[in-house]
């Protein structure tokens, strides 16, 4: 029986702009001087049943991305990983990661020990296991939200290998990929096709102080931090809303015709819409930068925004010149 631990380091060059091969689906977050991202690539061929999500973590110094590591890779033949979500813990280059697919429950992992080893908080291959769609560090516990045949659950575990202190409690609703978020002291989620966000204080026994915030349209994405919940809402175009956790008040901070990418850090909502980068600290979002290519993801720590941009270039290969797809990451600083 093989027991191999692989911690890939330096897999991505560091600098002002970091390039990632391909146009994968990116989930990203920033906190505590670190940038983390999960890159879910489609299958490379049609004859080989295989998908993967690579989780990378870097330090951010000013506007430079340094010390990139790739400590976690989830690999599967069970199906495309469609619901990968990564959240920075704010401690070192730590993060939580979920990597589920439509047809299978993926793992919930926490990264990492001082030896750069991940801890698998939950991983259940049973056909009726809940599919985890969101996770976050809440004090000493990693909490996650998933949906199974018998409904939604709020799970929890310690970021300690084989601590065996797992907990699971039912919560109302049926959230899907992108529709749940967990942060210190808050869990928020929306039903598939639903038009409101449920939120409250997570615990091993469930969610306390559960409240609803109507969003005025179909909720497509939810991102919560302790004081703010941002959402992408569809209905008469697209909107980004800000829900104040203390009051439950909902305000629209952006409207447009393309589906935006969002992220929240501190009380700042970052928005990537088409080729424009915007932020909102309180009211209407303001443009803070732009890109040449389509924006694949954004992340923010409240003062900086990381932008993942899809570009392509001609490159020479052994079989001749061809167009190579690249996702490049750069930091836009001082966006307050």
């Amino acid at each position: 029986m093989v027991v191999v631990v692989v911690a890939l380091t330096g897999a991505v060059p560091a600098g002002a702009v970091v390039s990632i091969g391909g146009w994968g689906t990116i989930s990203a977050d920033m906190a505590g001087g670190s940038l983390v991202w999960a890159d879910s690539q489609p299958a490379t061929t049609t004859t080989f049943t295989y998908w993967r999500t690579d989780a990378s973590a870097a330090r951010v110094s000013g506007n430079r991305i340094t010390e990139v590591i790739k400590p976690v890779t989830v690999r599967t033949s069970a199906g495309p990983i469609t619901g990968a979500q990564i959240r920075a813990t704010g401690v070192g280059r730590g993060f939580t990661l979920t990597a589920s697919g439509a047809s299978f429950a993926g793992p919930v992992t926490w990264c990492c020990t001082p030896e750069t080893l991940e801890v698998v908080v939950s991983s259940d291959g049973d056909h009726d296991a809940p599919h985890p769609y969101a996770a976050g560090l809440d004090g000493p516990r990693v909490r996650w939200i998933g949906t199974g045949p018998s409904g939604a659950v709020l799970g929890a575990g310690d970021p300690v290998e084989y601590a065996e202190r797992e907990a699971s409690a039912p919560i109302p609703g049926h959230p899907g990929p992108g529709l749940a978020s967990v942060a210190p002291g808050i869990a928020a989620w929306a039903d598939r096709g639903g038009s409101s966000i449920r939120f409250g204080v997570p615990a091993d026994t469930g969610v306390a102080g559960l409240r609803d915030a109507a969003q005025g349209g179909t909720v497509l994405e939810v991102w919560a931090v302790p004081a703010v919940i941002a959402a992408v809402v569809r209905g008469g175009g697209y909107r980004v809303t800000r829900t104040d956790v203390a009051t439950g008040g909902v305000t629209v901070v952006w409207r447009g015709t393309v589906r935006p990418r969002i992220a929240v850090g501190g009380s700042t909502i970052a928005i990537g819409a088409g080729r424009a980068v915007l932020t909102s600290r309180h009211g209407t979002a303001r443009r803070v930068g732009g890109t040449r290519g389509a924006i694949a993801a954004v992340a923010t720590d409240g003062s900086r925004v990381a932008v993942f941009e899809r570009t392509s270039r001609r490159a020479r290969t052994r079989t001749g010149a061809r167009t190579v797809r690249i996702t490049s990451v750069r930091i836009i600083g001082q966006v307050r």
């Binding site: 093989v2 027991v3 191999v4 631990v5 692989v6 976690v72 890779t73 989830v74 690999r75 599967t76 033949s77 069970a78 199906g79 990597a99 047809s103 299978f104 993926g106 793992p107 992992t109 080893l117 991940e118 801890v119 698998v120 991983s123 291959g125 056909h127 290998e161």
Partner: peptide, 10 residues
């Protein structure tokens, strides 16, 4: 999935 085997199937 587990830390020791990062590849899994259904």
């Amino acid at each position: 999935y587990n830390r020791y085997h990062r590849y899994f199937v259904s």
